[in-house]
Design a protein around this nucleic acid. Structure first.
Length: 564
RNA sequence: GUACCUUUAGCUCAGUCGGAUAGAGCAACUGCCUUCUAAGCAGUAGGUCGAGGGUUCGAGUCCCCCAAGGUACGCCA
């Protein structure tokens, strides 16, 4: 579609001495198919061409010629264009099939580095529903940017430091033992953590213990360091099960602890720049000039805080990865936090501070209340995924009990349902999680689109055994045309998703394409149609659907299922 | 109190840079399986785009004001 739009705007720009870019961006899709496939509103041109919009549209109609456009019309100041069936069924389809997996990609990223900080769960804590957002949005953005020629560096900024590690060590020493943790894994650690909070609530001395254990850890105490490393490895084992289900791989695991010795130089720098100020005992950077509360660098007792750590990590990332951008994928609740962080880095004189972007997303609640490790109503992502997989299994037992990769497929579809559900909405929307919605498999859902993909695969599998005419037919049905037009939109959807940092653009496109394919599938016999040239054409069309749908699945962390 | 976000069909949401008659899914109702996967397809019904002003050829979209809900605002991360 890009080529076509470019040719159209080029032609008009040259002929009437207009701006090609303006024309290009004015080219829109009409609300109704009867109004053509592309449309140019002529209202804005009225001034420079000194004619009425209607007259302009009519003038365009008289002079216009562009390959691929078979017919043009002037309607009430709109210049409407109709794309030829020949163009759609030959040039476009050839283009998609020739490019294959690369269709929709670009190299505008020029291999520039983009650091993406996402997922970042806390060690020894469950991976709960709230982590789903940062994990799938982050990885999806990573895929999208890579598809656009960027070199992405995915970093899992593990929460592996701070007094909560002290609590964990204290709890383990009080009530834990090696066998218990080895048997139960993270769940065992979480049980200890919850118990610690129950007990500590009524007794301040436990918090002192925790602080003490953390101080020992900071000072390199051998026993605590051993325990700490062990907790991390147990947690990672568990996290990696989930990441595998989601097809996610990180380039680096760089936890908070990594920066524990990299903060002092940054504090020095802040001091040199005379940005620090002591207020009520704490060391702060005053941001009142920018209408923000102060950024606390050091607590009253001199210890560091999250901001301190993130200043150090930003500098480290700049020095190490020479980034073009850093994306921090975290909840919208941290909007102010990141505004402060970016401002302080700017004040420190780091001219790359404007390359840091906070990608925020809405909060997830469950039954109206927020999720947390300590609260009673926290749902672990693991549990949800298992429920989803179980439901898929039951449906599959009814429909296709003898499927070869039964377990694998059930997992892909079950996990896909959750991912798709989450990524259907714009990321800024709050979600009150409801099982009946997330585990509904009808209509615009993960199982629906994976089912559509499997259908396409199934047809193509059968097509291998049939004799395909080497002559290829053309569009004969409306549904074929609609499907081709939908396929043509993929590249601009990709651009859109990237420029808005919005994976849901792809999710919505997947639905458009899947439903367009289903309409085509329902209306047009692919293999059994009377004419072998038409069959050849429809098989190619189905191949294109498989390519684009499959690529789009990958982009939003959904696995492809050849059969369901 | 201050700042930011959200508000579109009964529910969950799309709606591009302002462009033609505001679109999907769920739920409800009606049809379609001897034909390539019915987790499907076709159809019916459902709207004062939170309220009120303004900008203009044209506003769900931009500006102002108000309301409701959410989030964040100094020693957590």
């Amino acid at each position: 579609m890009h080529k076509l739009k470019t040719n159209i705007s080029q032609f008009l720009a040259q002929k009437y001495n207009l701006s090609e870019n303006d024309l290009y961006s004015s080219l829109d899709y009409p609300p109704d198919k009867k109004m053509g496939d592309l449309s140019l509103p002529c209202f804005k041109l009225a001034k420079s061409l000194r004619r009425s919009p209607q007259a302009i549209a009519e003038m365009f109609v008289c002079d216009f010629f562009c390959e691929g456009i078979e017919h043009v019309e002037s309607v009430n100041g709109y210049f409407n264009l109709y794309i030829s069936n020949e163009y759609l069924s030959k040039s476009l389809l050839d283009d998609i099939l020739n490019q294959g997996e690369k269709y929709g990609s670009s190299d505008i990223g020029e291999k520039k580095n983009i650091v993406i900080d996402y997922s970042s769960p806390n060690v020894a804590k469950p991976f709960h529903l709230g982590h789903l957002g940062t994990t799938v949005i982050g990885h999806s953005l990573k895929n999208l940017f890579e598809f656009n020629g960027y070199n992405c560096i995915g970093i899992n900024h593990l929460g592996d430091w701070g007094t909560s590690m002290g609590k964990q060590i204290a709890a383990y020493k009080l009530w834990g033992n090696r066998e218990l943790i080895e048997e139960k894994g993270v769940d065992g650690l979480v049980e200890l953590y919850i118990k610690f909070h129950e007990v500590a609530e009524n007794d301040e001395k436990y918090f002192d213990m925790a602080r003490n254990e953390f101080t020992k850890l900071e000072n390199g105490d051998e026993e605590n360091t051993e325990l700490w490393k062990w907790f991390i490895s147990i947690s990672l084992e568990e996290f990696k099960i989930m990441y595998k289900q989601l097809d996610i791989v990180f380039d680096h695991y760089i936890g908070e602890s990594f920066f524990s010795d990299k903060m002092t130089s940054q504090i020095e720098k802040l001091r040199e720049k005379e940005l620090l100020k002591v207020d009520d005992g704490a060391t702060i950077v005053d941001l009142s000039e920018y209408n923000m509360p102060p950024c606390i660098i050091l607590k009253r007792d001199g210890s560091t805080l999250y901001h301190t750590r993130d200043i150090a990590s930003a500098v480290y990332r700049h020095d190490t990865f020479n980034f073009d951008r850093v994306l921090y994928v975290t909840a919208a609740g941290q909007n102010l936090y990141f505004k402060q962080l970016f401002k302080v880095l700017e004040m420190m004189g780091y001219d790359w501070a404007d390359k840091l972007v906070h990608i925020s997303y809405g909060t997830m609640s469950f039954g109206g209340s927020k999720l947390g490790t300590r609260g009673g109503n926290s749902i672990w992502l693991k549990q949800l995924i298992n429920m989803s997989i179980e439901k898929v299994r039951e449906i599959m037992k009814e429909k296709n009990p003898n499927l070869v990769n039964f377990d694998e497929t059930a997992e892909a579809v079950g996990v896909g349902a959750i991912v798709y559900y989450y990524l259907s909405n714009g990321r800024i929307k709050d979600i009150d999680f409801k099982f009946e919605d997330a585990l509904n498999f009808d209509g615009n859902t993960g199982p629906y689109v994976q089912y559509s993909y499997a259908r396409a695969c199934s047809v193509l599998e059968k097509a291998k055994n049939s004799n395909i005419d080497f002559e290829i037919g053309r569009i004969s049905e409306l549904q074929e045309r609609e499907l081709l037009l939908t396929l043509a939109l993929f590249p601009e959807k990709i651009k859109n998703a990237v420029s808005e940092y919005e994976p849901s653009v792809i999710t919505r496109y997947i639905y458009e394409l899947a439903s367009s394919f289903n309409r085509f599938y329902h209306e047009c016999q692919i293999l059994n149609c009377s004419d072998s040239k038409t069959a050849a054409f429809r098989i190619r069309l189905t191949e294109a659907v498989k390519i684009v749908l499959g690529k789009a699945f990958e982009l939003i962390c959904m696995k492809k299922t050849e059969r369901i």
